[in-house]
Simulated scan of single mutants.
Amino acid sequence: MSEHSAKELLEKSELGIHGWDLVSEGGKLKLQRSWKAKSFMKALEFFQLVAEVAEAEGHHPDLHLVCWNNVKIDLWTHSVGGLTENDFILAAKVNALHVENLLRRKASD
């Protein structure tokens, strides 16, 4: 998927992928989003919920836990070395998870 196409998809609010950023790392386009969990254990619970959705979709993101409560997800299709529609579908499904009890009030806290 081209960067232009990816940006167009990100701008479509009806897709439910707000909060995700388009990044280029090593020439690969990725969707990326970060959150702050309430605690270390809540961060792991968050990842478990994401893992369940990812496993059901057969599409597995890169999950990062930095320090004790900073969680980050990188979405990209490893087999094509960039973004596909599946990445946007998984981003929307992650956004639809009910994780308010696991995260700090503001995603940017």
Results as ranks from 00 to 15, higher is better:
M1N: 01
M1C: 07
S2Q: 08
H4G: 11
H4R: 11
A6D: 02
A6W: 02
K7Q: 10
K7N: 05
K7V: 04
E8M: 10
L10R: 04
E11Y: 06
E11D: 03
K12H: 12
K12T: 08
S13M: 00
E14N: 07
E14T: 13
E14I: 02
L15Y: 04
G16M: 07
G16S: 05
G16H: 05
I17W: 01
H18D: 11
W20I: 03
D21P: 02
D21A: 13
S24Q: 11
S24E: 02
E25C: 02
G26A: 03
G26W: 02
G27A: 07
G27K: 03
G27N: 08
K28G: 00
K28H: 09
K28Q: 09
K30E: 15
L31M: 07
Q32S: 10
R33F: 04
R33K: 13
R33W: 03
S34L: 10
S34E: 10
A37M: 08
A37C: 09
A37P: 00
K38M: 07
F40S: 08
M41H: 11
A43F: 05
A43P: 00
A43H: 00
F46M: 05
F46P: 06
F46D: 00
F47I: 10
V50M: 04
V50I: 15
V50C: 10
V50R: 01
E52V: 15
E52P: 06
V53Y: 13
V53H: 05
A54M: 09
E55Y: 12
A56L: 12
A56R: 12
A56C: 11
A56K: 14
E57T: 03
E57V: 02
H59Y: 06
H60V: 08
H60C: 13
H60M: 01
P61W: 05
D62W: 05
D62I: 06
L63Q: 13
L63Y: 11
L63P: 09
L65D: 04
L65N: 10
V66Y: 09
W68Y: 10
W68P: 00
W68H: 12
N70D: 15
N70R: 12
N70W: 09
V71P: 09
K72P: 02
I73N: 08
I73C: 06
D74H: 15
L75H: 01
L75Y: 01
W76C: 06
W76M: 06
W76I: 03
W76A: 09
T77D: 03
T77W: 01
H78K: 14
S79G: 02
G81S: 06
G81E: 07
G82C: 01
G82E: 05
L83R: 05
T84E: 15
E85F: 09
N86H: 14
N86E: 14
D87H: 00
F88R: 04
F88N: 01
F88C: 04
I89A: 12
I89V: 15
L90I: 13
A92N: 01
A92Q: 02
K93L: 12
K93V: 07
K93T: 02
V94K: 01
V94M: 11
V94T: 03
H98E: 15
H98Y: 11
E100M: 11
E100P: 08
N101W: 08
L102E: 05
L103Y: 14
R105E: 15
R105A: 13
R105T: 15
R105S: 14
K106E: 12
A107E: 13
A107Y: 14
D109H: 15
